[in-house]
Design a protein around this nucleic acid. Sequence first.
DNA 1: GATGAATGAGCCTTCATTCAT
DNA 2: AATGAATGAAGGCTCATTCAT
Lengths: 209, 209, 209, 209
Amino acid sequence: MPKVGMDEIRRPQLINATMEVIDQVGLQGASTALISRAAGVSPGIINHYFGGKDGLLDATMRSILRQLSEGVQARLETIHPDDIIGRLKAIVGGNFDSHQLDSKVVKTWLAFWSQAMHNQSLYRLQRVNEKRLLSHIRLELKRVLPAERAQFVAQAIAALIDGIWLRGALTPEGINSDLAQRIITDYLERQLPSELFEKHRTLQQEQGL
Amino acid sequence: MPKVGMDEIRRPQLINATMEVIDQVGLQGASTALISRAAGVSPGIINHYFGGKDGLLDATMRSILRQLSEGVQARLETIHPDDIIGRLKAIVGGNFDSHQLDSKVVKTWLAFWSQAMHNQSLYRLQRVNEKRLLSHIRLELKRVLPAERAQFVAQAIAALIDGIWLRGALTPEGINSDLAQRIITDYLERQLPSELFEKHRTLQQEQGL
Amino acid sequence: MPKVGMDEIRRPQLINATMEVIDQVGLQGASTALISRAAGVSPGIINHYFGGKDGLLDATMRSILRQLSEGVQARLETIHPDDIIGRLKAIVGGNFDSHQLDSKVVKTWLAFWSQAMHNQSLYRLQRVNEKRLLSHIRLELKRVLPAERAQFVAQAIAALIDGIWLRGALTPEGINSDLAQRIITDYLERQLPSELFEKHRTLQQEQGL
Amino acid sequence: MPKVGMDEIRRPQLINATMEVIDQVGLQGASTALISRAAGVSPGIINHYFGGKDGLLDATMRSILRQLSEGVQARLETIHPDDIIGRLKAIVGGNFDSHQLDSKVVKTWLAFWSQAMHNQSLYRLQRVNEKRLLSHIRLELKRVLPAERAQFVAQAIAALIDGIWLRGALTPEGINSDLAQRIITDYLERQLPSELFEKHRTLQQEQGL
DNA sequence: GATGAATGAGCCTTCATTCAT
DNA sequence: AATGAATGAAGGCTCATTCAT
């Protein structure tokens, strides 16, 4: 009489344990023995549910990316379609969501980033995510800037997001989400017409009522 | 009498082999066997010259950081002390020097960045480098901006440098140095008074004569 | 469910293999590869059960010492508490028990003795054993000799035991247990009052009935 | 122009360094690198003078045995041929000579003893030495005891010498030479006719005059 | 005579994975 | 579904020895 639905218990349990172990000892030190112990299960279980260590790492990366994507999406849904500034801020905010700033997540992400260059599966995941961030931003910018300029500014914003994130990952204090938002907002104010910001404020107030 | 001065031959030879191997198979796959084979020497030699694998990795990181530091310094020396824009561009240019953009160097750097969180020695090196970049930039900015604003803008520029670099590392085409310079110059133009740019052009012309 | 109780099979199996290998090639030549092959298992198993080679060697020494201690204890239990000569002979006999004279055990013991000076854990084990032998002997002697004299004679007997044992270890014929007993009995006869020997004979006969 | 007689400098220098290193780290830890460094010469020199590590260890053992043999011989030469007790004491004294009790020598000797079982060359040296000690003692005893008894007592004395030596090797305080002599003299007094001791005292006094 | 850089086999250990239970 | 004992390849490192200088 097999227990049903163990998948839904074991898989997140192991993915979470993976991030915890990477947080503590790095990707290099994250052995299956350590991960399975952290999850409180036997080593063999990893092969059972993920077909091997690679499968587990892959699933872990997917999990992080899904959370990021869902976070951004959820924020966008609360913003008026015409509030371009609001939408850009939502994208930035999603990338600096508290879940994404969790030490576990930051270290895991960075470890995978470095690893992606030598692992096709991770590489693909990473690239998809990269492009999605860029195209989200560009999509909004193209509504108020010429295509070429939109691409240029989008690249700058994406770079700011990743750069702040990367630099923060190395500091003991972690990533300063508030500073990140201020730097990027400051950048936007100097790149985009001020009417957009007025509109932003107006639409925000409406929503507030 | 045995051969003397082999240190100066073997050490760079092994450091270079290390970067090549990391470029090809990643830090995880970079075994001493692979590295020594790439260098065309026996495995034992790594211990002879670096006291172990850790010593070699450490030396490799130091080598990259030294090259970066020297590159920036060399560029700064050719710029007039009062040409603040020129000096900022020099700092940026040093960080996007062709040597720093070599795939070998990029992948090695990124691998170490991820590793730094779990290795005190690498961590310290990374932190020193981080802070140096920021303080170089801030030093120039403080001559024309209030201290607080200088710090703010410096953080943005550092983030742009690292962000562009990081995103480029993952792209098949590599890092676009020219685009990097244009994005950052564009940012500077919107943050700093235009007289600085005029002075920059004047001083550049003088030097050209 | 995996096999349980393998501990009780594997540990003695590996300890025995260790002694066999030391018997054949010495402690220096006793590599984990050789030991695991002799035990018919894979090399990794040593770490699984003993945490490493040191743990295995430690356990091997403890095993020998436990056997010795149990052998002496078992013999003492069959002797009347007042049969001092009988008790001394039992102690000697336990030290020259056939198990202790097994070439495997002799060579392993000697190897550890030499090693003990540079290995704290082995040193402690050795010292405890040394002191126990001496105090066992002295305890009996103090019942019939002044304390100082008892200590003196005890040291002589302990030296005779170890000396005969050591010299025998080097001869091709091995240790002559019978000669050992005769030499020590002869020594006792010249050190202790003859009544003790008469009592010894009487008590032995009683027990024989 | 080769330096002549370097053999006589280098060989003892290396033999002494070998004992020092064995004293510090044991035979197992005594690498050629450590030994050559302790001797203040290059590693290659060991092969030059001894043909390899084995040759050096062999020479070291021979050196210790020669010192022992010469020590006993020198003491015997000062004793009157008819002073049997004096001659036996001289043999014992030679074995507990201060040079033989040096920690360096004790540990080296013990290491070799254990090693001898797996090294033909060391084994032969050890056996020769063993037999010599026994035959020296027996030779004297046969002048006053029946052959069989002489062999018996000789074995006991040899065992006492080696036993006291061995047990002392493991003690932090080292070997107690004085106690050794007292234990063995006590043994002799109970095994040999008292006239021998009177003669011993008489001959000693004559020599004193 | 002496050096020490270089070798490469062998060491102990780790680890992803398998499989009998 | 789950265990964990067992595997064996691969890892980093040590070390006796060689040899060009």
